[in-house]
Nucleic acid binder design. Structure first.
Lengths: 146, 146
DNA sequence: CTGCCACTTCAAGTCGAGTTGAGGTCAAGC
DNA sequence: GCTTGACCTCAACTCGACTTGAAGTGGCAG
């Protein structure tokens, strides 16, 4: 009875109905009924959508996100995989901190060319060193996180 | 004299030559000469590429990255803008932490449906609350960070 | 009962970020 | 002096994530 019309979901989540349909097709969310033609979603969908946008902003593809939290909102993945994802996020946080610090430094450092500023180089090189260790021996292709 | 051939740059950075050419076209990096046809890059390009991949993994578009660190490797943006970018990254870090915690919780919580687990809801809702404050009054379009 | 309007489907289009393929060039090693 | 292999250009293609457009449907207001 207390289902949300797709328009409702769209309004509350800020996500276009077309995108919601797309997500449903991709198995990220699922509607439970129709009112006329209109999809009706269970209220949890709002939580799921939050999860989805978190995942997206973390650089995961919709497919990966679907893997983390299946259409039911519960993950179908083994714990170990989830922990590995979490670890990946931790590494990404480190990178983001480096980027943030670099940015702030660049904003404040009066040096004419940052490429010569030792602080700058240190910041960037620290990251380069971290990024340099290849996680997988197979497939050295960098595989952009999109 | 001590320039790097594009092949060298590709090998050291792990970025395909085609991508390097693409970046050059996009104004993110610039070659300084040719050896025959082959592009020669100054050594700083490796630093710039590190910056670029940091930016990419932070979810910035190539265009935004170009804005942060112009082709010269030095930013052409006013300090305030850079600081705002840094602040945006800080917000993203918070989101990532929430996602990571959610993931870890999901991996460990034995509850049958996470949608009912109060810890889970708290985690997600905390994020939703943060994400809910609209930064711009104009254009409520969420504008995925890609 | 009639409109209206937000939804529906399905196909096609768009945008960013590259990759791929055809046809060409060049400097280095044999 | 050839051949080879890695690069060159330019156009076309791919892929993910959606959006847009055309043509249709159905509940609700008047």
């Amino acid at each position: 009875m207390k289902f949300l019309d797709i328009g409702e979901v769209s309004a509350r989540s800020g996500i276009a109905p077309s995108a919601l349909r797309y997500y449903e097709q991709a198995g990220l969310i699922s509607s439970v009924a129709r009112h006329g033609l209109r999809r009706q979603f269970p209220p949890e969908v709002l939580l799921q959508l939050t999860l989805i946008s978190m995942g997206k902003s973390a650089g995961f593809s919709l497919e990966e996100i679907a893997g983390m939290f299946g259409g039911n909102g519960t993950p179908d993945l083994p714990r170990a995989v989830l922990h590995r994802k979490a670890d990946a996020i931790d590494r990404q946080i480190l990178e983001l901190k480096a980027l943030r610090d670099t940015l702030r430094h660049v904003a404040d450092c009066p040096a004419p060319s940052h490429m010569e500023c030792p602080t700058f180089r240190r910041l960037v090189e620290a990251t380069a060193r971290r990024a340099a260790k290849p996680t997988r021996t197979e497939k050295p292709k960098p595989r952009a996180p999109r």
